[in-house]
Amino acid sequence: MGKTELKVAAIENGTVIDHIPADRVFTVVDILGLQKLDNTITIGFNLKSKKSEKKGLIKISDHYFTDLEIARLACVAPNISISLIRNYEIVDKHTVSLPDQVVDTVKCSNPKCITNHEPMATRFITVDKVAGTLRCAYCNREISVDEIIFK
């Protein structure tokens, strides 16, 4: 990568979250609770991207996320990529996408849905992996990424 393109400093160890839709960067910050971490964090906002017009990128030094945290991330920002960095090398890189079902992670937005009244797990069927549309397996309410509330 040429110097002119290197807009965000490389990290020695940690996680790089890339291809975040620009309007979701701060949602990702919230969901992962980054503001509570003491680690060094670099946030890139409105960067130019080949895949989408503008993107966000977040680098978190010396920190790796749990599967549950990644699953929550997939709900609000499907198609982002996650790279694990060790000793300046990318040891794992994968694109996060919504699973076919999202279990007990998201709250149904329908106040009359049974899941909001019983002590039970929620379950959503993924209708559109790219746009991030989920349908409640119980009441059939469809919710988009903009409407997601976590349990």
Binding site: N110, K112, C113, I114, T115, H117, E118, M120, C136, A137, Y138, C139, N140, R141
Partner: peptide
């Protein structure tokens, strides 16, 4: 409540017939 029949069918050891669950 909407989805009550689906939930009941998942937990019940005997079959459930939905005779209407809210507006669902």
């Amino acid at each position: 409540l909407e989805g009550a029949a689906r939930y009941a069918s998942e937990i019940s050891p005997i079959p459930i017939i939905n005779a209407g669950d809210g507006a669902n």
